[in-house]
Amino acid sequence: MTFESWAVFVPAAFALSLYPGPNNLLALSHGARFGTATALVAAAGRFPPFALFVLGAAIGLGTLITTSATLFTAFKILGAAYLVWLGWRMLRAGDGLDGTVEAGPGARLPALLRREFLTAITNPKAMLVFTAFLAPFVDPSQPAFGQFVLLGAAALALEVAAVVIYAVAGERLGGFARSRGLLGAVNKASGGLLIAAGALLAVASRPATT
């Protein structure tokens, strides 16, 4: 890639990583409820699926999901159901923790890591985003696989920066809410947003093929 291509790719990838999708909403919620450090560690759960999506884009799996209505529908129904279930648990949590997260920090992290992982791995839109976004920056005169991997690695590095922003913002929001006895409202807002994200995923259309 040329310098000019990188100059376009980096800010565009960073803007994409800041999109308030399900995983970023989780980072915001985890930051509000458990603090920045815990939210950052928990966010590590999203990166194995995202790395797989980059690899999938490099070997053409994104195209397979795009062209297979059955596969796309199966993934989106699974992902939507998980987001709605998770959002419902948060709505019912009130001022405390929902039943999927234990109170002790040592017991809490595996559950939060699992949330991030499952939210990422069951979202077919995430793989399609990686495929659709990275492909235009690949030089067709050069081997595609290595370019996809390099671009994907850069996108994942920018994803880390986005996680930090959401986690810190969540902690600030949580501190404000706790000082005014509004942590239950944060739980309800987080749950409602995840349910909305699940509903949007459930009605998402399969991208048109050419």
Rank of each mutant, 00 (worst) to 15 (best):
A51M: 07
T36A: 13
F117E: 10
T66Y: 02
A144D: 13
A58P: 09
V164Q: 05
M1C: 02
N187H: 10
F137R: 02
Y166P: 03
F9I: 00
V203S: 10
Y19T: 14
A51P: 00
L28Q: 01
L61D: 12
G146P: 07
L83N: 12
G198S: 07
L200V: 15
L113R: 06
T210W: 14
V101W: 01
V149L: 15
T119V: 15
V163N: 10
W88Q: 13
L112H: 04
V10I: 14
V10T: 03
Y19R: 07
F9T: 01
F3N: 04
N24K: 00
A44L: 15
V138C: 08
G174L: 05
R180E: 10
L28K: 05
A12M: 14
L61G: 13
G96S: 07
L25D: 06
P140W: 05
F53C: 01
L112N: 08
E159S: 09
G184F: 13
E116G: 07
F3D: 08
P11R: 00
G152A: 02
V129I: 12
T66M: 14
G198M: 06
L194K: 01
G181C: 05
P124F: 13
F133G: 00
W88A: 15
G146S: 11
P11D: 01
Q147P: 05
T131W: 03
E159L: 02
G87K: 08
F75Q: 13
G170C: 06
P140C: 03
L28F: 05
V203C: 00
A58G: 08
P11Q: 05
A51E: 03
L28N: 07
G21A: 02
E102S: 12
A37S: 08
P105V: 14
S205G: 15
A155F: 09
V203D: 07
I65K: 03
L134Q: 01
D139G: 08
G60V: 10
F72T: 00
F9G: 00
V41K: 14
W85L: 13
